[in-house]
């Protein structure tokens, strides 16, 4: 089961996310939207990524949802008071608004996080290239994802080196501020200057040829892909139909 979910073609999974986006805007209320979260969690469990999914989701969304309820609950314009305390009154209109808003946020966030947990970026890039995305675009995406962790490590190395040279990183604001220039300055300048050589390297790898790029890794497209896509399409048609009829 785990393998079949992970092996789904990237575009199929992307269609799933798109389906969620469209359907949560058509279906009224907030129950369906909130329900997307447990569905995503089930898929995450089956794909073996439940732990990372949950830690990412709850870390990112919990505070926002909470604050929305607090702020909109108390300050959204409305008449129906549910609870009153001190100078604040919780209103029904605010609560309703919060439910509608947060349910959509939950659904979208859950589906996007799930997508990236069950899809390897490498595979997504291959699928994009097959669909005609230019080399330059896919290069920028892959290169960015690779270079960020690399530079973060570099920062730590530079900080240690500067600390051993006597640069202070704790103390008053001025002391800490003085650490910024030696640490960040050389890192930024050398990183940008190095791009000149990197361009030569890309040229040497025939990056600028006009030929259509191939990929050494071939992504399989199985029968499950077709099934999933058909199911999503049918569900979408059903939802739109129901939405139109009312």
């Amino acid at each position: 089961m785990k393998k079949s979910i992970l092996d789904l073609y990237p575009t199929t999974k992307l269609l799933g996310v798109l389906f969620v986006f469209i359907s949560i805007l058509i279906v009224p209320g907030y129950a369906y939207q909130y329900a997307i979260l447990p569905i995503c969690m089930v898929i995450a469990l089956l794909a073996g990524v439940l732990q990372s999914f949950c830690s990412l989701f709850f870390k990112g969304v919990t505070l926002i949802v909470l604050f929305i309820f607090i702020i909109q609950g108390f300050f959204y314009p409305g008449e129906t008071v549910l609870w009153s305390g001190w100078i604040f009154s919780l209103k029904l209109e605010g609560l309703n608004y919060s439910l509608l808003l947060t349910s959509k946020i939950v659904a979208i966030t859950a589906s996007i996080i799930l997508f990236f947990q069950i899809t390897k970026t490498k595979d997504l890039i291959i699928a994009l290239e097959k669909m005609g995305t230019p080399k330059k675009v896919t290069y920028v995406i892959m290169s960015t994802l690779q270079i960020i962790p690399q530079m973060r490590k570099q920062l730590n190395v530079i900080m240690d080196a500067q600390r051993s040279r006597g640069v202070e990183t704790e103390g008053s604001l001025m002391i800490r501020a003085k650490a910024i220039v030696p640490v960040l300055g050389t890192l930024i300048i050398s990183s940008f200057e190095n791009t000149q050589e990197r361009v030569i390297t890309l040229e040497s790898r025939a990056f600028t040829t006009q030929r259509k790029k191939t990929n050494v890794t071939v992504l399989p497209k199985g029968p499950l892909d077709t099934i999933v896509r058909i199911v999503l399409l049918l569900l979408l048609v059903l939802i739109i139909w129901k939405g139109v009829i009312g």
Partner: peptide, 28 residues
């Protein structure tokens, strides 16, 4: 410079070596 001769577009050495041939449109 060994550091700037890594394209940065690939996650494994195998794919890195294949990159030039991919750009040239050679069959997988």
């Amino acid at each position: 410079n060994p550091f700037t001769q890594i394209s940065g577009a690939k996650e494994t050495v195998f794919e890195e070596i294949a990159y030039g041939l991919e750009n040239l449109g050679v069959e997988p």
